[in-house]
Amino acid sequence: MIKVHYFGIIAEAAKSEGETISSPGITLKSLIGDLTEKYQLDSYEFQIAVNRKIVKEMDGLELKDGDEIALLPAFSGG
């Protein structure tokens, strides 16, 4: 299972704080593509974290069971 977390404006767009997805072997790129289509995230800017680290390059990254993905809009602490 892959755990996906949504934050800020992305959580609002998805109407959810997260979900669990069972798609063994899916690439990060195709997962993000699916979620973008499902929640119409095209107009939003966000970074992606895999296992709590920001990922700059999605190409070729295959997800495995237990991975934790997060869709993170601009940080605005302070």
Binding site: F7, G8, E12, A49, P73, A74, F75, S76, G77, G78
Partner: peptide, 19 residues
Amino acid sequence: VPIFGKEIFENEDFQWKVN
């Protein structure tokens, strides 16, 4: 640090804060 602020207005409307 992944912290997100939501600015709340008088009428409970809101917008997501951008630093």
